[in-house]
Design a protein around this nucleic acid. Sequence first.
DNA 1: CTTGACCTTACAGTTACTAGAAGGTTGAAT
DNA 2: ATTCAACCTTCTAGTAACTGTAAGGTCAAG
Lengths: 131, 131
Amino acid sequence: MNIGTAAAHSGVPAKTIRYYESVGLIQPADRTASGYRVYGEQDVETLRFVQRARSLGFSVEDVGSLLALWRDRSRTSAEVKALARHRVEDIDRKITELTEMRETLLHLMERCKGDERPECPILQGLAGKTA
Amino acid sequence: MNIGTAAAHSGVPAKTIRYYESVGLIQPADRTASGYRVYGEQDVETLRFVQRARSLGFSVEDVGSLLALWRDRSRTSAEVKALARHRVEDIDRKITELTEMRETLLHLMERCKGDERPECPILQGLAGKTA
DNA sequence: CTTGACCTTACAGTTACTAGAAGGTTGAAT
DNA sequence: ATTCAACCTTCTAGTAACTGTAAGGTCAAG
C-alpha cells in the first residue's frame, strides 16, 4: 500500500510518516520503481504503536526506545516499566504546575468585577502589586 | 541601567529581553552613544509583568494583549477577565488530557510485573492488543 | 491523452527561546 | 597608557515535532 493508505490505516498523517522516517524513528520504507513508498501490515502496526505512544505524551525519542524494546525479545519488562514510570512522573509534575497556575489565576479573577470599569485586580496582581 | 542589571532586577534573562524587543512585545529600549540598551525602573516593572504573565502560561502574544490592556486606562475589567477565563479553560483542558494519559499509563503499568522477564502488558497495550 | 488524485523532495514557518560566534565598550587595576 | 575581565552588540543556528506550500512526477480512469 502507498503512504496515503498507510496513513489512513494507522492514523498517522502521511506527512508525519515521512517526517518519522527522516528523523530515523521508523525504518525507511521500500520503494516502487517510480519512488513511491510501500507499506505492509507490519508497518501499519508499527505506526499505530508510535501513534499510541505519542498520544500518551512520550517524546519521539522515547518512542524510539519503546520501539527498540518492543522489538527486543530479550528485554525485561522492568525496563519498559521504568520508562512508563518516568513518563507518569513527568505528567504529575506538569499537572502540579498547571494546577498552581489555575489557582493563581482563579484567585486573581475572583477579585475582579469583570464589568465596564477599568479597575482590575488581575492586572494589578500581574504587575506585582499586592493590592 | 544596562540590560544585565535589568535582567537581574526583573528575572528575565538579558537574551530574552532582547528577544522580546525583537518580536515587538516590549518597546525598543533607549541606547547609549555606544549602542548599549538603557533601562529604567518602569521598564523593569514591565518586564516583571511579562514574567509573571508568562509564568501563568499566557503566550507571548497573550502577554502583548495583557500589556496593552495594562496600559490602556479606558479598558474594562471585563476584557481582562475574559482573557484570564480563556486561559483557565486552556489549563483545564490540558489537565484533563494529562489526567487521562496518566490513567491509561497507570492502568498499563499495573498489569506489568516489571521484573526480568520479557512479558510486558505495557508494550502489548501500546501495540493495540487488548491482552 | 488528459484529468485528478496521489506521490516525490525541499524549504519555510510555527513557539519561545537558548547557544555560540565574532567583535565592540567599560571601568578598574597595573 | 595599557591590559583585563566583564559587560555589551548583532547574527546565525538549533531546539521539538510537526505542518504548509511549492514545484513537479506518477497512476488509473474515461
